[in-house]
Design a protein around this nucleic acid. Structure first.
Lengths: 216, 216
DNA sequence: GCCGAACCGTAACGTTCGTTACGGTTGTTT
DNA sequence: AAACAACCGTAACGAACGTTACGGTTCGGC
């Protein structure tokens, strides 16, 4: 291969994973005031070790974001023959999973720090986007295109269809949670929201007679 | 009245408004590193004056958020007899305005600081929510209900219908912008997105024959 | 013209926190 | 057992920043 060196994804030892878990706990409990001393205290390690392993505070945050991203991976899509029920189940599973993730305290804390320092040259936001929104998109687009090939969905651009699905699922939930609002989100409510979002998506992009195309 | 004292909304002089404008500019250009010295330098005032007028750094931020919120007020809805064209125009106007606001650098900077310190006891996020998401909702719900009364829309809860409209308009735009992504959003694209969102909303909640109900 | 209030520019103080350095301890290798 | 590396706990340094204090200037009122 003539390409440049790989992005140098370092291996994470078990002890290092413990430290990153401590960072996540610290972020969730104490919010934005994430000091190196607090991390060291919570992880029962020395600050010297933190700096030896992660370079500096930014390196620690980057490692934490990547670590959390690696933990949240959904099962890949199998190339089963899709019928309407299987497609619905897959879409609802996606919606359920996504709503659960964005309302978890861990995801909220990570998104908050990434947003709080966005606009700087730091690229934490890019990492969060790549492992959140864009990872979802590239995982769901094949499903949508399989649905189209099976004659269940009708759209021109899978990207556009996915963005609409995204909006139907998330609505105002994520921004409200990020801003500190706490809409009641018991699992029952989440499940109901997921099925409603998928039903609306089918109403917009379903191919069977009766489903209407929306855009001109 | 036996109620407690009013929320004590202080008057803002012209000079104070200049200072708050300086805060906004500082937030937009230098991101999260908003120091009192930088504000004083940019506003050509002394730090002593900042503290005399706004109390402390938090008071300055609160005043800035309220100041910006007071600047962004849309024309109230007139009780015109609604036909389909008028309702469509009003919804598209809402979508256009909302997309324009959330993609403005000022709104992004304010939302970033509010989110960055959410989870603390500070209530900046509550102010942003009250003047953004919730102000929109209470402004649009009468429009939606007028549309229902005119036989143009069909829904049970205006709140739910509005949240769906919100999702169809915003999709993934706001979170991507907050995290530092920059999807191309020329005014033409925004206009196209607004009309698409409204068309999809009519497909879901329109009352004329052919529009399907989505939820079971 | 004089007085006091408001304000500007800057200096100074104290705290927080990122970063580095050091002594002591544990576990591994030879 | 001795040597060595890795690591923990803590102390120390330095910079950034919120907050306060002070001298000089402007401006409206008597």
């Amino acid at each position: 291969m003539t390409a440049a060196a790989a992005p140098a994804e370092p291996e994470i030892s078990a002890r290092q994973a413990e430290v990153l878990d401590a960072v996540l706990r610290q972020l969730v409990t104490d919010g934005n005031s994430l000091t190196m001393s607090a991390v060291a205290r919570r992880a029962s390690c020395s600050k010297e070790t933190l700096y030896k392993w992660f370079g500096d505070r930014d390196g620690l945050l980057n490692a934490t974001v990547k670590y959390q991203a690696a933990r949240v991976h959904v099962a890949a899509v199998g190339p089963d023959p899709l019928d309407r029920a299987a497609l619905t189940a897959r879409l609802e599973s996606f919606a359920l999973n996504w709503l659960t993730v964005i309302s978890s305290e861990t995801s909220l804390a990570l998104n908050r720090v990434a947003i709080g320092q966005a606009g700087s040259d730091r690229s934490l936001g890019a990492i969060v986007l790549a492992n959140g929104r864009f990872a979802l998109g590239s995982r769901m687009k094949p499903v949508l295109e399989a649905g189209r090939k099976a004659g269940l969905l009708a759209f021109e651009e899978a990207e556009e269809a996915f963005r609409t699905l995204f909006g139907l699922v998330a609505r105002d939930v994520q921004i409200r949670l990020l801003l500190g609002d706490s809409p009641d989100l018991d699992p029952d409510r989440i499940r109901a929201d997921a099925t409603r979002a998928v039903a609306q998506f089918f109403a917009l992009y379903g191919a069977q007679p009766g489903g209407g195309k929306a855009a001109p």
